[in-house]
Amino acid sequence: MLEVREISKTFNAGTVNEKLALDKLSLTLEDGDFVTVIGGNGAGKSTLLNAIAGTFPVDEGRIFLDGKDLTKLPEYKRAAFLGRVFQDPMMGTAPTMQIEENIALAARRGQHRGLRWGITKADRAHYREMLSTLGLGLEDRMTTKVGLLSGGQRQALTLLMATIRKPSLLLLDEHTAALDPKTAAKVLEISDRIVSENHLTTLMITHNMKDAIAHGNRLIMMDAGRIILDVSGEEKKRLTVADLLEQFTKLSPEGEANDKMLLS
């Protein structure tokens, strides 16, 4: 269970670029919740995910995961409980290392890294089996450098890496936004399958309203660092893109859906 209590974050405080990115935001996720997050540019969606992941410290408020207080933990220590996939396909993998080496790094997340050899034979067989479930043929290219893979392949691999050790919370930060529509659909399908098979608690940002409606059991809309809409269950299933746009115009103080939201 994730519990975010009244967290705030201001970037560039005291300068002309001062920006209140999170405004006393609170959010609770029950185990197994798959929450999609939408909102305009600068609404604070990525800031929320990064605050949970510990990319930066929050100014106030606290973050709990399964009862543990994460607020003061550094990013690399929180990683033991989190799985993350980033918007930029380049960010989630080590390009100069092999596919199997990348997976091995992820498989030891939260564990002590000592002087044992990095990959064993048993590891390799396990990784091959996991890769084959992606359906991308990567199981036959285990020693290929990840830098040679396409964006979609890298995102699928990052997903696998994020979930190879079951995380308490999976954070997907617009992980299909940089992909072409067909690849994006494929990666989303893989995400859905992995989340449901492992009953993962998930927070997924998307710019695509259709995706936000089609996936998960709960949808939240953000604006100016706050949650302005929170829909779940049957109510969410009945949502349409038109509903969301109407809600957004009504609830957002700026009162208009920006281009990117309309286009997507």
């Binding site: 980033f86 989630g92 080590a94 091995a104 997340r109 890294r113 990095g118």
Partner: peptide, 28 residues
């Protein structure tokens, strides 16, 4: 041998992608 171990691999990951390394729990 050293750079083939778990620790060595995590050092290589640190050099090639700090973001990824931290997201995988590596103390960069």
């Amino acid at each position: 041998w050293l750079f083939g171990t778990e620790l060595g691999a995590s050092i290589r990951a640190t050099g090639t992608n700090r973001h990824m390394a931290r997201a995988q729990g590596i103390n960069t």
